[in-house]
């Protein structure tokens, strides 16, 4: 394995996203997918990005590789800095060099993420060949080692994706992502498409490998249980904005935003033997026609008159904890 150990440098920032705005523009509508996202991940740390489907999580993740689907997806403004270098200013050649090498991504659906006509060994080896500039044989040898590392016997490297189960496929996807020892691993709902019994194994695998190689990670999920297990910090996304951000403790024990509270209330409470889920009431707003003011106001139990008029600004409640909500204009204490 050619994974040289990297010293985690607490000072260094792996990823910084500032004020990112991404819309999908087609002839008849504009989908406002991402509307001013700010994200920061320090070297070796894991950030959880949590939100309902349609919150703009995948779009944000793809923008880090500058892979927002063309031609509708338009990055309208903002900055994406990868170890200080602006991704959006990179040439196609520079982008190809960082994709899969500095930044790798694990996708949501392992059933469709692998090329059906190439062997899994070839698919892993391809990354190595591109970025390590080694011979095909050497790349295949390393690919086999990688397969073993994710718990698949290396003899199976000649098999095709259709010969693997969903969980095994996701292991292959993980192998592809980790094979060049990226500094930043983006995991976009890596377990959502898997059986519950497999989810824990795959999550454990990702977490172990991440720690072993000191990668930074952006863990996208809507599962707060996963966040509690693997993340250092959490950003809560709603309608293309980060409406609350903090450390695990900030969010789990001192949540401030009504939407964050709604997410926690939606969890099944085993202690209280309350079996039915109580999802956040109402629906995700239509991204082509976002509500005025605070995008959460039509669903918010705490909504005030000002909420439909003006967008709440980001407010830092402590060194680590910030929130976008009018409730905290004059106070840092919980209003929930």
């Amino acid at each position: 394995m050619n994974m040289e150990m990297k010293k985690p440098n607490e000072q260094q920032t792996t990823l910084e996203i500032k004020n990112l705005v991404i819309h999908y523009i087609s002839d008849d509508e504009v989908v406002k997918a991402v509307n001013g996202v700010n994200i920061e991940i320090k070297a070796g740390k894991t950030l959880g990005l949590v939100g309902e489907t349609g919150a703009g999580k995948t779009t944000t993740a793809l923008s880090i590789l500058n892979l927002v689907p063309e031609p509708q997806g338009k990055i309208l403004s903002g900055e994406i800095l990868l170890e200080g270098r602006s991704v959006l200013a990179m040439s196609e050649l520079e982008l190809e060099a960082i994709r899969g090498d500095k930044v790798a991504m694990i996708f949501q659906d392992p059933m469709t993420s692998l090329n059906p006509v190439h062997t899994v060994g070839d698919q892993i080896a391809e990354s190595i060949e591109i970025h390590r500039k080694v011979s095909k044989q050497e790349a295949l040898k390393q690919a086999k080692e990688m397969l073993e590392l994710v718990g698949i016997p290396s003899e199976r490297s000649n098999e095709y994706p259709f010969q693997f189960s969903g969980g095994m496929k996701q292991r292959v996807v993980i192998a592809i992502a980790l094979t060049c020892n990226p500094n930043l691993l983006i995991a976009d709902e890596p377990t959502t498409a898997l059986d519950v019994t497999i989810q824990a194994q795959v999550l454990k695998l990702i977490n172990e490998l991440r720690q072993k190689y000191h990668m930074s990670m952006l863990m996208i999920t809507h599962d707060l249980g996963i966040v509690a297990e693997v993340c250092d910090e959490v950003s809560i996304a709603y309608a293309g904005r980060i409406i609350e951000h903090g450390t695990l403790e900030d969010i789990f024990d001192h949540m401030r935003h009504p939407y964050t509270k709604g997410l926690f209330d939606a969890l099944p409470d085993i202690g209280a033997r309350r079996s039915e889920l109580k999802p956040v009431k109402g629906l995700m707003p239509d991204p082509t026609n976002l509500p005025s003011g605070c995008p959460f106001h039509p669903r918010c139990d705490y909504a005030m008159e000002v909420c439909s008029r003006s967008v709440p600004e980001n407010k830092w409640l402590s060194e680590t904890h910030c929130v976008e909500c009018h409730l905290y204009t004059d106070t840092n204490e919980s209003m929930l």
């Binding site: 190809e96 790798a104 469709t112 591109i130």
Partner: peptide, 16 residues
């Protein structure tokens, strides 16, 4: 061209 595995290939750094 809009399948997920094409996106995977691009994310690996495969040339266009």
């Amino acid at each position: 061209i809009r399948q997920d595995y094409i996106r995977t290939a691009k994310a690996k750094g495969v040339k266009a």
